[in-house]
Design a protein around this nucleic acid. Structure first.
Lengths: 360, 360
DNA sequence: TTGAAAGCGCTAACAA
DNA sequence: TTGTTAGCGCTTTCAA
């Protein structure tokens, strides 16, 4: 039978030092049990010279018995370094998760552990400047360097080296990794043009991101190339948020002269647009073609599957690790400031040649 | 001029208090600039009573100017609580990432931020007991509670409340969330039996996990049900590691009397088995049917797509959050100790009726 | 070879 | 209403 009100058990730690440690063991518990001072224990654990083999061995046994591991918090506060790399995200959504997979793989064997912090959860979404706050909370103490995923602000001047992935718009001061959004958007829109579409809409992304602007730019250029007049009615703000995208898609699809194709600035927006269209009884791709951007896993398993522009997300994560480690190891000069990776069109089931509408 | 040395640029902070803060601002920088004491700043930041509106406003402006945010490290060390939930994983691989997505979503609006720590990266893979170490490093200070993903050891007795997902084998002392592996394995194997297969192999998972054992158990039961004799030759250890799985798959496929179907204990193993088979010129599903377990995103985009047993990973993450929050809020009694979620068969392209081999 | 003491940045108790 | 002090767990001088 289990005790109720259990959480009290974790907080109410008695401080009397001879107690059996209630929670985790501290360095003092070890010192006490081993009959040495805390500083000796510290030396043993960190492999410092000046401890006899006998003492060392003895202490290590106690450490093992007590299952002691030094508190990351306390030691980092003191040492100012942790051998941990931080990945700061607003939220754990598919885009960030794919990057995380690449980052993790690239970090293997580097000697760094990996910590990821979502700073925009407790406070509610879309908290401008979350990464500055996160960085300030973790940086300088908990993590030796950080990778920022789609930051909302420029984070230069941080206390630790920082690399941005899919950076903020404006002259980027910190090193950054991005995919070629302009080329990607050109490919996406050309694909729709080649399928015979002329009324092509665009659901815009977070315009504070360089990449989202470039995607709109690519869309416009491809239209111009094809001699299709730009219609401001057909561009709507989605902001990568579900609510805003839903609204944008609805407005677009309720237009008297409805578009026959949509290029959305990312996959999540594209998938949401697809749902909105389907709720209205539109068939995809027969009545409406949709192209996304990113190639997140869900793009391959939607119904129909989503035609999209693939960003090499795992490679982008690995690239960011490379830039960051170069800076952590002090030879920033060896690594470039900005890395751009190619994108490519992945044609799936959500796009088809334009068909004349029966009803019109 | 700053000190040199490894990352010296970021560390060699001059301590003279009137300097422009080189790295992040500390509470003392704020206090100094505001002309008040550090404790007053602390009170303002944490909304404690006993500070005049005027002082408070003044301090807040300085805080804003300096971009100050309190160090999570330092405050947690002092307060013993952080309002952060930790997710401890060995590595950021697809299974953990899918859970993370669910955990993150479920945590929105709970007042807790989310931190995920991969404890098995710097030390190399398969470090037994990584979660105990991680927990000891983070728990009691950095995180208020933890969700452990496929832990290698029982973590009861930790300093903070803990919930396991896909727990370790043996009588689980901490609350746990799992999918119904036994039923899943039965479905997987029956599916192969129904397709006419009789030589069905099994690539076993990490046998320290309860779930992996149940999957083997389900496999055996389904064979028995169908009156197919169990052949120990057809069960190989994969351990969820690429290297071991490659070996297992190779051994199986090089058997004189090769199996016509394989049930792998997770998708990654199944996908690896698929590759090994394809390297040998075997066509899937014509020459070999393969069933996985998990339904990670990659299962839907492999070539051919993978038939698998779907675990509701995001729901499992959400369930774990529910159990953890109940414990953090002190009413553990309100939440169950163990939650099991259903699995279901997802038939895709990697399974087909058994065909008689031309050459035999 | 060992231990005492100081201090990392912060907060809580207490004093002024 | 404000500031002083002590101490969270650890590491690092420095003295014994």
């Amino acid at each position: 039978m289990r005790a109720v009100g259990r959480s009290g058990r974790y907080r109410g730690r008695v401080t009397h030092p001879t107690d059996v440690p209630a929670g985790r063991a501290t360095i003092h518990d070890v010192a006490l049990a081993a009959g040495v001072s805390a500083s000796t224990v510290s030396k043993v654990i960190n492999g410092r010279y000046g401890v006899s083999a006998k003492t060392s061995e003895h202490v290590l046994r106690i450490v093992d018995d007590l299952g002691y591991a030094s508190s990351l918090i306390a030691s980092s506060l003191r040492r100012g370094r942790t051998d941990v790399v931080g990945v700061l995200v607003a939220d754990f959504e598919p885009f960030a998760l794919a990057l995380l997979e690449g980052i993790s793989a690239a970090l293997h064997g580097s000697g760094y552990d990996l910590l990821s912090y979502a700073g925009s959860i407790a406070d509610g979404p879309r908290h401008e400047g979350w990464e500055r706050r996160s960085l300030s909370r973790l940086g300088g103490t908990l993590i030796d360097g950080a990778i920022l995923v789609t930051p909302t602000v420029e984070a230069a001047g941080s206390s630790v080296p920082v690399v941005a992935i899919d950076p903020h718009t404006g002259e980027s001061l910190s090193p950054a990794v991005a995919a070629d959004s302009l080329a990607g958007a050109l490919q996406a829109t050309r694909h729709l043009v080649e399928l015979g579409h002329t009324r092509i809409a665009h659901v815009r992304g977070r315009i504070d991101l360089e990449s989202a602007r470039l995607r709109e730019e690519g869309y416009r250029r491809a239209l111009a190339e094809a001699g299709i007049a730009f219609d401001p009615e057909l561009v709507r703000a989605g902001g990568y948020s579900t609510a805003e995208t839903t609204e944008a898609a609805a407005a677009l699809l309720d237009l008297a002269d409805r578009p026959t194709a949509v290029f959305a600035a990312n996959d999540l927006s594209a998938l949401r647009t697809m749902e909105v269209a389907q709720e209205r009884g539109l068939r995809i791709p027969d009545d409406l073609s949709i192209v996304g951007f990113d190639d997140i896993p869900a793009a391959a398993s939607s119904e129909p599957t989503l035609t999209t522009i693939r960003q090499p997300l795992r490679e982008m994560g690995a690239e960011a690790v490379r830039l960051l480690l170069a800076r952590l190891d002090g030879d920033a000069g060896a690594a470039p400031e900005h890395v751009q990776l190619p994108t490519r069109l992945v044609v799936r089931g959500s796009t088809a040649p334009r068909r004349h509408r029966p009803g019109r």
